[in-house]
């Protein structure tokens, strides 16, 4: 699964993209966030407050209860601040 990070999530984690295989039973956006938080101190800091993080599956906004498949592109980022 391709996982992308933007803005301060990328800064805290130290990279913008990872190719990862979540463990069996890690099926939703929320479950993947909880698992990612265990991967390194940077990940733990980035995912410390899940309510502050937005997600997208295949470039469409997604909610924490949405399922993610192995061929999906999953992205995590803060609330947007463009314009």
């Amino acid at each position: 699964m391709k996982i992308l990070y933007f803005a301060w999530l990328r800064s805290k984690i130290g990279c913008g993209e990872e190719e990862l295989t979540p463990p069996v039973g890690t099926a939703t956006v929320g479950q993947i966030m909880a698992w990612l938080a265990t991967r390194s101190p940077g990940h733990a800091e980035a995912f410390a407050k899940p309510a502050l993080i937005r997600a997208a599956i295949n470039q469409d906004f997604a909610t924490p209860d949405q399922p993610v498949g192995p061929n999906d592109e999953l992205a995590f980022f803060p609330p947007v601040t463009g314009g």
Partner: peptide, 26 residues
């Protein structure tokens, strides 16, 4: 278009002030 762009288009601003870099909060 501007109001929806500001809350739905995935852009993020980082500001630089006297050597510091800070991500802007929504």
């Amino acid at each position: 278009l501007m109001d929806w762009l500001k809350t739905k288009a995935p852009f993020w601003k980082m500001e630089e002030r006297s050597g510091r870099q800070d991500w802007v909060d929504a």
